[in-house]
Design a protein around this nucleic acid. Structure first.
Length: 279
DNA sequence: ATTAATGTTCAGAA
DNA sequence: TTTCTGAACATTAA
C-alpha cells in the first residue's frame, strides 16, 4: 500500500525511463476492470497530452506527478494497490492505463496497474495543479517538515498521535504502516494525545519520521504478505524485513526482547506497538 | 458460503 | 469547528 517511501521508489524507478520522452498515446487498457477515476475524460486527456514531452517526474506526498512540457501535469494517486510500472506487470487483468512513449529505446510504455481500482489519474492545468497539491489540500511533505512546523500543528488537535499522523492535512505522506513504525522508533505510545506531547517528545517524533522514511526508501519500500507492492521494475521491496512492530502482533519486540507486540484499533485501523518501548 | 479485514481518500453526518 | 463513519473497490482469510 503505497505510502511516501513506496511512491518515492516508484518515482525514482520510472524517472530515468520516462523523463524527456514524448507521449505518443495515452490509452485505457483493454481489461475487464471497471473504469477507474479519470479526469477529465479520456478524449480530453488524449487531446492535451499526446505529442507532449514529459518534462519532469516528481512526488508530492503519496502522489506521482508527470509534468508535461505544456505545463499540464498528470497526478497519479495509487491509493491502495496502484503501481507505476515500466516492466512486467504482476498480471494483465489489472493494467488500467498506458502512456505509450516516443523513441525506439525500451521501455516503450509507462503503465498504471491497480488491482482494486481505487487509484486515480488526473490531468491538471497549471492553476489547478497548484490548488490540488497546495496547502489547502495537503500539509507539508513528511520528509521536509521541520520542528517549527511539527510543534504548532500537533498542538492543534486532541486526537491520538497515531491518528494525527495519518491526517494528510497535518503532515502529508505517512500512512498506516509507517505511523506505527515511526512511533515505535520515537518511543511514543500511539494513544497519547497529540496536543499533550512534550517538546522533547515532539523532537524525537520529528527525528523518527525522517529516519524511518529515509530508511524505508533505501530499502525500496515494504512489500507485505499479499505481495501487491512492486517497484517500477516489478520487484518487491525489502523494508518489510526491517519492520519492528507492523503486522508483528504477539511476536517479541526486536528492540527490547520484552513483552510481545500489541495490536489495537484506532480510527478503525490497526495500530501495532511495543508496550515496553513505547510510553 | 458468507463475513471480515485490508488501507487511502472523500463525502456527509454527528 | 472538529471528529467520526461509511463507501469506493478486489482479494484473501476465517
Amino acid at each position: 500500500m503505497p505510502e511516501l517511501p513506496e511512491v518515492e521508489t516508484m518515482v525514482r524507478g520510472i524517472r530515468p525511463f520516462v523523463e524527456g520522452r514524448r507521449i505518443v498515446e495515452f490509452a485505457r487498457c483493454p481489461c475487464r476492470c471497471r473504469p477507474l477515476s479519470l479526469r477529465p475524460g479520456l478524449a480530453a486527456i488524449r487531446r492535451r497530452c499526446e505529442g507532449q514531452a514529459i518534462a519532469a517526474v516528481r512526488r508530492r506526498a503519496k502522489r506521482i506527478i508527470l509534468e508535461l512540457a505544456s505545463g499540464d501535469a498528470f497526478v497519479v494517486e495509487p491509493r491502495m494497490t496502484g503501481l507505476m510500472l515500466v516492466a512486467g506487470p504482476p498480471d494483465h487483468e489489472h493494467l488500467r492505463y498506458e502512456w505509450r512513449l516516443g523513441g525506439s529505446q525500451q521501455p516503450q510504455s509507462l503503465w498504471f496497474w491497480d488491482r482494486r481500482g481505487l487509484g486515480t489519474v488526473r490531468l491538471f492545468a497549471p492553476a489547478e495543479l497548484a490548488d490540488a497539491l497546495g496547502d489547502r489540500q495537503l500539509g507539508p511533505d513528511a520528509l521536509e517538515m521541520t520542528l517549527d512546523q511539527w510543534w504548532p500543528r500537533l498542538r492543534q488537535t486532541a486526537r491520538p498521535i497515531k491518528v494525527a499522523l495519518l491526517d494528510q492535512k497535518l503532515v502529508a505522506g505517512i500512512g498506516n504502516l509507517y505511523a506505527s513504525e515511526i512511533l515505535h522508533r520515537a518511543g511514543i505510545h500511539p494513544a497519547r494525545q497529540a496536543n499533550r506531547l512534550t517538546r522533547s517528545r515532539v523532537e524525537r517524533l520529528a527525528a523518527a519520521v525522517r529516519t524511518i522514511l529515509e530508511e524505508a526508501i533505501r530499502h525500496e519500500g515494504s512489500t507485505l504478505s499479499d505481495g501487491t507492492y512492486r517497484n517500477a521494475l516489478n520487484q518487491a521491496g525489502e523494508y518489510q524485513n526491517a519492520h519492528r512492530v507492523y503486522d508483528r502482533e504477539e511476536q517479541p519486540c526486536k528492540t527490547c526482547q520484552g513483552p510481545p507486540i500489541v495490536r489495537i484499533v484506532q480510527a478503525q485501523r490497526s495500530t501495532f506497538f511495543c508496550p515496553a518501548c513505547q510510553k
